[in-house]
């Protein structure tokens, strides 16, 4: 499984398979610059591969006041 934490909101999702960060953005209906894709202490560009067992944080960046 791939575990995805969504910020802000603290929601957690799981996916059986996602190949790349771009695929994850697509699944969440997000554009490339709508969110940071974080794995551990690194940022992932959309072409980076995501592996089974990864824990990913998706931090949307739009500020709302």
């Amino acid at each position: 499984m791939i575990t995805v934490h969504l910020e802000p909101g603290n929601e957690t999702l799981t996916f059986p398979k996602i190949n790349t960060a771009q695929q994850l953005l697509n699944k969440l209906s997000l554009g490339q610059t709508d969110a940071l894709i974080i794995r551990g202490d690194e940022l992932l560009t959309p072409d980076r591969r995501i592996h089974y067992g990864d824990e990913i944080t998706v931090r949307t960046v739009i500020s709302r006041g």
């Binding site: 802000p8 610059t33 709508d34 940071l36 940022l43 931090r59 960046v61 500020s63 709302r64 006041g65």
Partner: peptide, 30 residues
């Protein structure tokens, strides 16, 4: 852009608030 400032904060280890103002719902600029 906001994406760039968010990436900067992550890489420069700047801890910041992420929650929206509770009064900002429906703000037209969003």
């Amino acid at each position: 852009t906001e994406f760039e400032t968010a990436a900067y904060c992550f890489l420069r280890k700047v801890e910041h608030g992420k929650a929206a103002c509770p009064y900002s719902g429906g703000a037209t600029f969003t």
